[in-house]
Design a protein around this nucleic acid. Structure first.
Lengths: 213, 213
DNA sequence: TAGATTGTTAATCGATTAACAATC
DNA sequence: TAGATTGTTAATCGATTAACAATC
C-alpha cells in the first residue's frame, strides 16, 4: 500500500461503499471483477473506481481485473476495520440504544464498553445486558478505561459537554448525532450524522418535480 | 425567489446548516448578520455563503447584510419546511422508534401517521400512542391514505421490498437507513443515511495520525 | 500470442474563492 | 456622503472523466 499523503474526503466516503459491494459479490461467490462491471453495479464510472483505488496502490491486474476477496480485505485494511474498537455511547435514549444494538448484532469489530445518560430513569436500565451509567461518571470511566470512539446521541444541549469529556478522556474519534457543530481538537476525528439536515435536504428534493439530483 | 434551474447538490446540503445557525441567532435576538460574520461562525467562506444564497435570489442588502429572521424564513421556504409532511415508518425497531420520537418531539412539521414491522412481537406495541402495524398492511395503508415520506429502518433484506411498496403507494420521498442502495424511480426523492458507511469513514480518520480532514 | 483491463497521464468539468463594481 | 457589504463576474482550484500505453 502506498503511503497516502493526502487522499480527498470524497474518496474516503466512497470506500465503504466499494467494500459493501465487494462483500455482496463475495457472498455470491464471485471471485473476480473488473472496474467496468463494478461501475455498472455501483454507478460510479470505471475510471473513478480505478482512480480511487490507485490512491492506495495497484490492487488489480491488467487483463484480469480485481480479485474480489483480496480487494475486499485490502479496503478493510485501508479503512482500519480489520481490528476491534472500544466504544462508549453518551446519550442512551432510543437512538443510543439503536446504535448499541447495531454494534451488538453487527458481531465483530465494535465493543460497546459503556453507556451513559443524564436521565435518572434510564440509569441502571440494561441494554444487551450492559447497564446504563450516570452521565456524571463519564469522565471517571474514561480516565480508567481505554476507549477508541465516543458516540454522542444526547440532545443538542449536552452534546458539547459530552464532547469535551470524551476529548479529555482521550478518545480518538467522535461519532456525533446531535444537531450541533462540535468544537474539538483536530487530532480527534469527528464524523457528524446530522439527521435533521439530511431530512431537510430530502424535503427540498421532494418539492422539485424534476428531482434528477 | 429566482427559478432555480439546477442548483448543485453541494449547495442543498449546506442550506439546512445555514438555517440551523440562523435559528440560533434568532434565539439570541440577533437581527442582522453579514456573510463575513456568518462565515466566522459556520466555517464556510463569506464568498461561498453569498454564492449559495444567490442561487435562490438576493436576500441581502448592500452595506447592511442579511436580516436574520427573514433569511431564516426564506431558507425554510426554499427547503419546503414551511409546511407539514405525513410520514410512515417501515421498520419499528430501536431506530424506527428513535425517529418516531424525534418527529414527535420536534413538534411541528412532521406527522408520523403509521409504523410497520415484520416482527409479530412488535406489532401492536404503541410508540407515542401509535400502534405498530404489520408490514403486510403497508400496501393497503398507502392505497387508502396520503403519505409524503416513507422512512425505511428495516434490515437490509426487507429494504427494497419496503421501497417498492412505498413507491407503488405514491410517496414522494424515501428516507433510507438500511445499508443498501435502493432502486427507485427518479421521480421519487431518495435520501440515504448509511450509518455503517459513516462509521467506517470515521474509523479511517481515526487511523491517520494527522487527521486534518 | 491476442484480448482484456489496469494504472496513470492529460483533458474536462464543476465547485470554490477572489475581486470588485453596484448600491444601500 | 462615506463606509460597509452585497451580488456577480472572473480566476483558481480540485475532482471527475477520457484516453491510452503498459502489461497480464
Amino acid at each position: 500500500m502506498k503511503n497516502p499523503i493526502k487522499v480527498s474526503n470524497a474518496v474516503i466516503k466512497r470506500l465503504p461503499k466499494y467494500r459493501r459491494y465487494l462483500e455482496e459479490l463475495k457472498k455470491k461467490g464471485v471471485d473476480r471483477i473488473s472496474s467496468g462491471e463494478l461501475s455498472k453495479m455501483i454507478g460510479y464510472t470505471a475510471s473513478q473506481i480505478r482512480q480511487d483505488l490507485n490512491n492506495f496502490g495497484g490492487f488489480g491486474q491488467q487483463g484480469y481485473g480485481y480479485n474480489v476477496e483480496s480487494l475486499h480485505r485490502q479496503i478493510g485494511v485501508i479503512l482500519g476495520v480489520d481490528r476491534d474498537y472500544g466504544i462508549v455511547i453518551v446519550g442512551s435514549g432510543n437512538l443510543g440504544q439503536a446504535i448499541a444494538n447495531y454494534m451488538h448484532n453487527y458481531g465483530t469489530g465494535f465493543s460497546v464498553l459503556a453507556m451513559f445518560d443524564v436521565k435518572p430513569e434510564l440509569v441502571g436500565r440494561r441494554v444487551n445486558s450492559l447497564a446504563i451509567s450516570d452521565f456524571d461518571e463519564l469522565g471517571v470511566y474514561l480516565a480508567e478505561n481505554f476507549v477508541d470512539i465516543g458516540v454522542i446521541t444526547t440532545g443538542a444541549e449536552s452534546a458539547q459537554r459530552a464532547a469535551d469529556d470524551l476529548v479529555k478522556g482521550g478518545v480518538k474519534g467522535i461519532w456525533n448525532f446531535a444537531p450541533v457543530d462540535l468544537q474539538t481538537p483536530s487530532l480527534v476525528a469527528l464524523e457528524n450524522v446530522h439527521l435533521s439536515d439530511s431530512l431537510h435536504s430530502l424535503i427540498y428534493y421532494i418539492n422539485r418535480t424534476d428531482n434528477l439530483q
